[in-house]
Design a binder for these strands. Structure first.
Lengths: 206, 206
DNA sequence: TAGGATTCTGGCCATGCGGTCAAAAAACGA
DNA sequence: TCGTTTTTTGACCGCATGGCCAGAATCCTA
């Protein structure tokens, strides 16, 4: 049982890394299919075609598995979208590209985005505080706030409260995916472009 | 056991209406305190200082209880906020007043707003579809879309997609309360005013 | 190939859930 | 007052959950 994520990180065996990846993938597909509240360990294990104990063996518990799912998907989104955002010449285009980029990612990896969205919405600690939402504000809002501030410095954006804007933007993007999930025929890219327009107008100078 | 909400609505006895109100209130307080996922019938019953069977006796089940909580809070919000919104002379002010109004309601009835917000976020049917979110779009988005269209007709608002805007506005308001719930020292009214500014700028002409 | 380390299985545990029920209690009406 | 109806209780049901573990299977290396 080497799966403790302790600082003294032992390297994982090949088979262990493969199993973890397989289980994470099964978790993604299960959550996307039946929703977070119905995605029990037993159901995830069945999707992965392994015994339930395997999950407990490779992960510290359901919480760590969910953490890994989020990290996995979030990292992939960052790798696909961040370069495009950074390549833009001005902050307004960067903002639009960000929204457009995550929507395109969602179209290409529907299950992964659905799972991420579900975990964000439902995964709470025992006290009911969200595990990934605003509770560690820095982690999730800081990149966006950096972008806003850059735009404010350059004069492209007016002087607005970056925290309120970051919370709002995150919420509108989440809502876009939730709406898309419950209305699969909804035109996601059109929604994304329209949302980009809304967001830009909300904050651009003057 | 007269609590069936059948069309042939028998009138409820005084004591039954009182008990239902008491239980709804206990549900509100329990959800606000421990979050929707931890608000079991047993816990709500303990809060109400009645036996668990009483809830089953007066309500068809947990779902009906949640429905009643939503109806109760939602109705009250409507009564307090709608008149103020309708009294405004133009659509831009109406929009700001709406956001400001619900924030003021939340400050005055923190537990009720928290409970409503929690139910919106977590209450799903067995298929994972939200019970109050966008699934019955008309119910929740239509009033807002009406307001948008009125503003578009009057020329105050530009030509934007009212559905995208309605989904986004609802999401930003929910996020405001969720952020406030996890950051109790957050200045809710300032957030509301700032959000009003964002929303107005997003859609006003040209 | 032998033997230790790693991985997997399948059943088991305690817990909590929503819901039900017979019987007790309370309220009501004649 | 007494019989009926309404309401409440507390135990109980079946089920699902996350987690645990002894033993079996497999893998790896000496």
């Amino acid at each position: 049982m080497r799966s403790k994520n302790e600082p003294g990180g032992q390297k994982r065996s090949f088979i262990e890394r493969a199993r973890r990846a397989q289980i994470i993938d099964a978790a993604v597909r299960t959550i996307a299919e039946v929703g977070y509240p119905n995605a029990s360990l037993a159901r995830i294990a069945r999707t992965a075609q392994v015994s339930k104990g395997v999950i407990s063996y490779h992960f510290d518990g359901k919480d760590e598995l969910m953490d890994q799912v989020v990290i996995s998907v979030y990292t992939q989104i960052g790798e696909e979208v961040a370069p495009r955002v950074l390549a833009e010449q001005n902050m307004e285009r960067a903002l639009r590209t960000h929204v457009r980029g995550v929507a395109e990612y969602a179209l290409a990896h529907r299950e992964r985005m659905t799972a991420l969205s579900q975990i964000f919405r439902h995964f709470r600690d025992a006290q009911g505080a969200p595990r990934f939402d605003g509770s560690q504000p820095e982690a999730i809002y800081q990149p966006m706030e950096e972008l806003y501030r850059a735009g404010q410095r350059s004069g492209e954006f007016r002087d607005f409260d970056v925290r309120v804007m970051a919370v709002s933007q995150q919420a509108t993007i989440d809502a876009m995916f939730e709406y898309w999930r419950t209305h699969p025929d909804h035109d996601l890219l059109a929604h994304a472009d329209e949302l980009g327009e809304l967001l830009v107008r909300a904050i651009r100078a003057p």
